[in-house]
């Protein structure tokens, strides 16, 4: 594990017309991790991914990718980035072999043998047109092509959203095997929280175009808990994230360490990732 920063984002904002898709975003994405980018549809996830790798310039603020400040029209850092866009776009009329040849020609670095080996292990025939592959196989081909660039940063936009549970697991298996072999940093956006808990060790949560939560998942879980006790309607508690009320009881999800003292009327429970994510996605502005 490295303490280096893969992507440094400083006070970044992106405006489309009069609408700010992203505002006042400051983030350090640590290298050597698998980082989850979480948020509802329209929260700014895709915008943030595109800004992070310089696919478009921010309206304000600055981005530094793998130690190099991004400038418009200077795409050299992109050769160190693998990107799989939503829905794993492939040329559907190309065979898998033609797709490989195309990517070898258009990239400065391309591990042809490694890619062929991985596809063989997955049982994906090289002579099949990509449009005739299953959704899971198309996702695997797109991932294999991105990995063959031997990127230092791999960015995946909703990689498993359209896949069934088995294909999802197989995709993650390929991803984990690649991460374990190299020290590639992975930044992936997803709604599927249970998957994230196994795969990711760092998380960034967006709501309404702003970063609401960011950090190592273990630290985030250790830094929050649920307090259960008699109903309180005016909970003016430090670090209160959300409150749910029954007729006589209340559950308060609060940002405070497990070691913080509690009033004897309250029972403290650890929080799981799904609860934590939902609480922040629902939170009020």
């Amino acid at each position: 594990m490295s303490s280096d920063v893969a992507v440094q984002i400083d006070r970044v904002g992106k405006r489309y017309g009069r609408h700010w898709a992203l505002r006042d975003c400051t983030l350090s994405l640590p290298a050597g991790r698998i980082i989850a980018l979480v948020g509802a549809n329209g929260a700014g996830k895709t915008t943030l991914l595109h800004l992070a790798i310089g696919l478009m310039p921010p309206t304000e603020g600055s981005v530094s990718l793998l130690g190099t400040p991004l400038k418009p029209g200077r795409p050299q850092t992109l050769s160190q980035v693998g990107f799989v866009a939503q829905d794993h776009p492939l040329y559907r009329g190309f065979t898998v072999a033609e797709m490989l040849r195309y990517c070898r020609k258009t990239n400065t670095r391309f591990d042809q043998a490694g890619a062929e080996g991985r596809l063989r292990d997955l049982g994906i025939p090289l002579n099949r047109r990509t449009g005739r592959l299953s959704g899971g196989q198309q996702a695997q081909v797109a991932l294999t092509l991105a990995l063959a660039k031997q990127p230092r940063l791999l960015v995946l936009d909703e990689p498993v959203a359209s896949l069934d549970p088995l294909a999802r697991r197989e995709f993650m298996k390929t991803l984990i095997a690649a991460v374990a072999e190299t020290d590639v940093t992975v930044l992936l956006s997803s709604h599927v929280v249970t998957e994230l808990e196994r795969i990711c060790d760092h998380m960034v949560l967006l709501r309404g175009g702003r970063v609401r939560l960011a950090g190592d998942i273990d630290d985030l879980l250790a830094g929050h808990r649920v307090l259960t006790g008699p109903r309180v309607d005016d909970a003016a508690l430090d670090g209160l994230v959300t409150a749910t009320h029954g007729e006589r009881n209340s559950h308060l999800l609060v940002r405070q360490p497990a070691t913080a003292p509690t009033h004897p009327r309250w029972e403290a429970h650890p929080v799981n990732l799904e609860e934590l994510v939902l609480a922040y996605l629902e939170g009020q502005d």
Partner: peptide, 15 residues
């Protein structure tokens, strides 16, 4: 190995 466990169980190698 860390790598073998991560791949077999499908969890983050850092974990």
């Amino acid at each position: 190995t860390v790598r073998a466990v991560a791949s077999a169980v499908v969890i983050n190698p850092n974990t």
